[in-house]
Design a protein around this nucleic acid. Structure first.
Lengths: 195, 195
DNA sequence: GGTGCCATGTAACGCGTTACATGATTAT
DNA sequence: ATAATCATGTAACGCGTTACATGGCACC
């Protein structure tokens, strides 16, 4: 979702070939530790962009056989890019793997919600530790990108930790009450049933 | 990544067929507003799970022709599921579409970082508004799942808002300094160059 | 007999991944 | 020579999506 537009933005700066785009992408996101794009994705994405008419091959360097294919952005590409910049990115997927794991751990035997929560908290704390360490080591003069990204990640992480605490508390409350299994009845048919 | 294991968990409760799994999944995550799984994904995922030997068709109801195929979990499936419950979910992708958009908006002409930030903030505020409204309307007795998920999302959202404020401040600071374009030089070759 | 739910899928595509294959240039 | 880096790609798979196709059954 993002790589497509990122590549478009990078060829908009000036025409580039695949390998160069790979390097430029990593420079923008602050290194492969932050966001590791595989070359395969660069080339397949470029091919799709070309198919959609958003970029086109400007020239081919290298003489004999298939050399560097240098891509340039097209007018259509520029307008798509402008669109992208003009509109905000949709944030709320509401899809959360940990959440569904937690829910299932409440109703599947042989799984303990509390253990699930503890495991998760341990991992979040570990992550926060390594990320804040990385953040401290980053040079604010030359690695602004990395710092901003690390900050964002840590802030989300801390939000997740607070949420975990909250959930734990909430589960304490409901401890003895029968967990209201949300009654898997088929949707619809709200009118006169046949019973 | 999560649907696969979720389905595994649901068939672990008791054998089910595809349509029932679809309903059960939505019940667990708190409705299609939270997490809309398409039927197609249910069936293809079931097929893959069967291919991997984690579930198997228990019986087929419906008489003539292809009827309901009821899946049950296998021993292998149970062990994979236990694995899943036992280990935490990896959180730190560090991949953030807005982030890369912001970075590019700083170096691509015809794009304004400040406008990008403003657009994004507007969307986050809008989202927070609708989600807190949904949260208030949810019934804590019967919709625990939906509430927990909404809380998590809102908390992340607010983290993102705080981060946006921070970024804006940071960009004020660097206003006049030449934005340190991170120098797209190829990695490696740190030793005696040929120049 | 039509509408709407129940129930099952296939096809094709986008995005991302791993693994594999190929060849040119350059440093030692 | 040979190793590393530069540079380009294909194949196959997993996950998720949209769109399409099929048929039974119940209700009115």
């Amino acid at each position: 979702m993002s790589v497509r537009h990122a590549l478009l933005g990078l060829v908009a700066q000036h025409p580039r070939h695949g390998y160069e785009l790979h390097a430029a992408f990593e420079a923008v996101v602050g290194g492969e530790q932050n966001w590791d794009v595989k070359p395969a994705q660069i080339y397949t994405t470029l091919a799709r962009l070309e198919g959609a008419g958003l970029v086109q091959v400007d020239q081919v360097e290298g003489g004999s056989g298939p050399g560097k294919r240098i891509y340039a952005i097209t007018a259509a590409g520029r307008s798509v890019l402008a669109e992208w910049f003009a509109q905000a990115v949709e944030g709320q997927h509401l899809r959360d793997e940990f959440f569904i794991k937690l829910m299932l751990s409440m109703s599947v035997g042989a799984a303990s919600p509390r253990r699930v929560i503890q495991k998760q908290r341990a991992m979040l704390l570990r992550d926060r530790h390594t990320l804040t360490a990385r953040r401290r080591q980053a040079d604010p003069k030359t690695e602004l990108a990395r710092i901003l990204l690390l900050d964002k990640t840590v802030m989300r992480l801390e939000a997740d930790l607070r949420w975990l605490d909250m959930v734990e508390g909430r589960l304490e409350e409901v401890r003895r009450q029968p967990v209201p299994q949300p009654e898997v009845r088929p949707r619809g048919r709200p009118r006169t049933r046949g019973a």
